[in-house]
């Protein structure tokens, strides 16, 4: 996957205590036991870590990791590697 995906995986592991082995692009946040409050926190972390503007309701627990990567890539400057 992309650099964005790799960084998001690191954030999920380091900041949200998600088991790295459980993360795949098509896994949902719900399946990683990330509830709506965790999602709000994750979106806040994504905003600051990727320097993007994402609305508070841009993702829900039933969305996949791939969906969150898309949110970032849609917003991020092209120079982000």
């Amino acid at each position: 996957m992309s650099a964005t995906y790799d960084k998001l995986v690191d954030l999920l592991v380091d900041r949200f205590a998600v088991d790295r082995a459980e993360i795949r692009p098509d896994v949902t946040f719900e399946e990683l036991e990330m509830d709506s409050l965790f999602l709000v926190e994750l979106l806040l972390v994504m905003r600051s870590e990727f320097d993007v503007q994402i609305s508070e309701d841009a993702a829900s627990p039933t969305d996949t990791i791939e969906h969150a990567v898309g949110l970032i890539d849609d917003q991020a400057p092209a120079t982000t590697s």
Partner: peptide, 10 residues
């Protein structure tokens, strides 16, 4: 304010 955690209050 952007850096304040959503988990602060709970």
């Amino acid at each position: 304010p952007e850096s304040v955690s959503a988990l602060m209050v709970p």
